[in-house]
Structure formats: structure tokens, C-alpha cells
Measured scan of single mutants.
Amino acid sequence: MKGKVVSYLAAKKYGFIQGDDGESYFLHFSELLDKKDEGKLVKGSMVHFDPTPTPKGLAAKAISLPLE
């Protein structure tokens, strides 16, 4: 699924993505496929991810940034 980063707290390594389906997904650095892309996780960045339901809500897994 595609989505847009709505927040990312680099110090805490987490944030949120708004998916194309309108839902909010929890984003964690550990799910970023290329850790070098962390600096690109800023508000408004477009990402691809696997939407995954968890006991705490919806989460983004296997997060990647589109090729530039």
C-alpha cells in the first residue's frame, strides 16, 4: 500500500503514516527495509508498506521509500 508520513519522531524511532485507504498506521524504524532511508522519513514523504493489524491497532510493516 502507498501512504504519506504524517509524523516521525527520530529520537524515539516511531511515527505515523496515513494510508491511501485513509487509515492511520504506526510506523517504527525497525520496519524500514533500508535503514539509510531514515533521514527521508519526514512529514509528507511518500512510502510503500504492508498494512498489518496488531493487537494495538494498525501497523506499517516492510516500509520502503519510492525510487527517486
Score class of each variant (00 low, 15 high):
K43W: 09
K56T: 09
G57V: 03
Y25H: 01
S45Y: 07
L41I: 07
H48E: 12
Y8P: 00
V47N: 00
L65P: 03
Y25C: 02
E38P: 03
Y8L: 09
M1Y: 05
K56I: 08
S7R: 12
V47L: 06
K2T: 14
L41W: 01
S30P: 03
S30A: 09
S64M: 11
S64W: 15
G3H: 01
G44F: 04
K12T: 10
A11R: 12
F16V: 06
K2M: 11
K43I: 10
I63L: 05
L33N: 08
G19N: 03
M46K: 11
M1F: 07
G44D: 07
G57S: 03
G39A: 14
S7M: 15
S45E: 08
H28G: 06
Q18V: 13
D34N: 13
L33I: 12
S7W: 15
K12I: 06
M46E: 12
Q18T: 10
L65S: 05
I63D: 01
G19R: 00
G3K: 00
E68K: 09
P55V: 10
F49E: 00
L27S: 02
M46G: 06
P53T: 14
K35Y: 08
L9Q: 12
A60I: 01
M1W: 04
D37W: 08
E38L: 07
P51I: 09
I63P: 02
D37V: 09
F49P: 00
D34C: 10
Y14L: 04
K43N: 09
L9K: 12
L32N: 01
I63T: 03
K36R: 14
K4F: 14
P55I: 10
H28L: 07
D34K: 06
K12F: 11
P53C: 13
T54L: 06
K36T: 12
G22F: 05
T54M: 07
P66C: 14
D37A: 09
E38T: 05
K43H: 10
G15Q: 00
V5L: 07
H28K: 07
I63K: 00
K12C: 10
S24C: 14
E38R: 05
F29N: 04
A62I: 05
K35F: 08
G44Y: 05
E23N: 15
Y25P: 01
V5A: 00
T52R: 11
K40G: 06
L58T: 04
V47C: 03
G57A: 03
L41P: 02
K36F: 08
M46Y: 12
L65F: 14
P66A: 15
G3P: 00
L27K: 00
P66W: 15
S24T: 15
G15M: 02
A11P: 09
M46S: 11
P55K: 11
G39K: 14
L32A: 00
Y25R: 00
A59M: 14
K35V: 08
A10Y: 11
H48G: 07
G3V: 02
G15P: 00
D21S: 04
P51C: 06
K12R: 12
T52D: 09
M1I: 10
V47P: 00
S24N: 12
I17M: 03
F29W: 12
M1Q: 07
L41D: 01
A59D: 04
K12E: 07
K61P: 02
D50F: 15
H48K: 12
L27Q: 01
F26D: 02
F16D: 02
A10H: 12
K36Q: 11
K2V: 11
F29D: 03
G57H: 03
K13G: 10
K4C: 11
P51L: 04
S64D: 05
M1A: 07
E68A: 13
S45R: 15
D21L: 03
Y25F: 03
V47I: 07
G39E: 13
D20Q: 10
F26N: 01
G15R: 00
G19D: 04
D37L: 09
G57Q: 03
A60N: 03
Y25G: 01
E31V: 04
G15V: 02
V6S: 10
K36D: 12
D50I: 15
A59V: 15
P51M: 06
L41Y: 02
Y25E: 00
Y8H: 01
V47W: 04
A11M: 10
